[in-house]
Write a protein that binds this DNA or RNA. Structure first.
Lengths: 267, 267
DNA sequence: CGACACCTTGAAGAGGTTCAAGAAATGTGG
DNA sequence: CCACATTTCTTGAACCTCTTCAAGGTGTCG
């Protein structure tokens, strides 16, 4: 029924990637030649600014201090920890979540390769959420001081940092819309479309995906209970919109999902 | 029953303000002496970095290109409009809201004096939400290009811009927690506490406030219908937690509100 | 292979919404 | 300044969606 799941490749530098309007295929590079440098990384298009000169590209390499591997289930950073770095995800999949004093927990986002996490820590100099790896992961450690230094000199980097932060603000606006005004089916449909779209931008299928998170985590993100998530999946299956086998999801009717999200709530 | 409402003063420069740990009273300045300059503005502590040298302060003045008055009910910017400026609120009160294609509407925040709006526009070079004045307002227009230029030179400004954006991200995380996991009473209690805390930081009462928005707008922000907001207010009144007369609210029992927010949802 | 985490499904219940009507404030124009 | 239209707010009753509680099934990993 399902293909063996398309996994993020262990070495993203060996993974051809097409992106955006002028997106060009980047030729695979043999693993041996890799050094810890953005200029060699084919995820660069995702987490670094485009259109840099050769000199600027060299400078950019300086923002990555090191790499760090995180085992599935362990945290990259925790609420309360001193903030020092932003992290660009090379491989793997994360969730971020905030907790209130009384132990309530809310997943605030799911992050995949090429995305940057840690922005929450800047204001208070301490992180205000947890970042947990949902599968074995590797990140580029980018000391924020270095980012700030460099973005004073490389205008494109400065602009890029601003855009990344603004993008996160806009994303959260969208989640607020979802949480504030959508019903369960609409939420799950929007969630699936968003996931598959981001995966597609990374070279994966437009119609097939493997969920890296539990129903409970999906539910937390969408403001629903895990049972509701499960039931809603089942309803989608009944309606022939998707096939679901545990965490494997195949979207059979993308338009139906889009219709569900944009259901005119005539008001 | 209620005092004549404590309004934001028409001229904020005449409004003594205490803030933060080392917050010092700023002496009132006669209206005639005012020029369009942060160095003269007592909201500076809210929207600009602290601890600048005299030279830096002079430079900072350059970020404000002009001032702009917005009538109640009209927009500062709209979804889709070209992004060019950030705006620091001098007086008045705004809401920001996003709309989905199908006409759904979601208030994403309420902003008051000293707060900065427009950050959503940076990613796409176009605004993705509307900013509507809920009372007559005045803002400082800060061309973003100028902010970027200057923050390459003035490190404190650079850091400040980063913090403002990060603060917004963290705020939205909090709203997601609220929308995703709280019940109506908890949402409204959290909302009131947040508002009164921000007003208090601006020199207003800790217990009394005038809502600048309708029940419907509160509801949109909190992911509730206006009837639910109204009913929840009524319940608070019954329980002696607040007094409500239209938009005038007096908090009689702050601790009760805090208890409601932190109600142990034992899990 | 057995323990454990995760997922599905049913039935009952609660919280919030919807629809509706009326009251209270606010604004407008004569 | 008053009358009238409009907006905003409150409250009730019926309804609906999602949650809660419970049980059983499926998959995974040591």
């Amino acid at each position: 029924m399902f293909e063996p799941d398309a996994k993020l490749p262990a070495n993203p530098d060996a993974h051809a990637l097409t992106l955006g309007k002028g997106g060009s295929k980047i030729v695979s590079i043999n693993a041996q030649t890799i050094k810890v440098a953005c200029s060699n990384c084919n995820l660069r298009e995702l987490c670094m600014p485009l259109g840099l000169s050769a000199t600027e590209l060299d400078r950019i390499d300086e923002v990555v201090a090191s790499r760090r591997k995180i085992k599935r289930g362990s945290t990259l950073f925790r609420n309360g920890e001193k903030f020092a770095n932003l992290y660009a995800i090379r491989t793997g999949f994360f969730k971020t979540c905030v907790a209130s004093e009384d132990g309530r927990d809310q997943v605030t986002g799911f992050q995949m390769a090429g995305e940057v996490i840690g922005l929450d820590g800047i204001v208070q100099d301490h992180h205000t959420c947890d970042a947990v790896a949902l599968e074995d992961a590797e990140v580029c450690v980018m000391p924020f001081e270095r980012i700030e230094e460099l973005s004073r000199e490389v205008t494109a980097l400065q602009r890029h940092v601003h855009k990344i932060m603004s993008r996160e603000i806009v994303r959260e606006n969208g989640v607020m819309l979802l949480l504030g005004s959508m019903r369960a089916e609409e939420r799950l449909a929007a969630f699936l479309l968003n996931l598959v779209q981001r995966l597609h931008a990374r070279g994966f299928s437009q119609s097939e995906l493997v969920l890296r998170m539990t129903r409970e985590e999906i539910g937390s993100y969408l403001g629903l209970k895990l049972e509701t998530v499960s039931r809603t999946f089942s309803r989608f299956v009944e309606d022939g919109i998707v096939e679901v086998k545990q965490r494997h999801v195949r979207i059979l009717n993308t338009d139906a999902l889009k219709d569900i999200v944009n259901a005119k709530v005539c008001n």
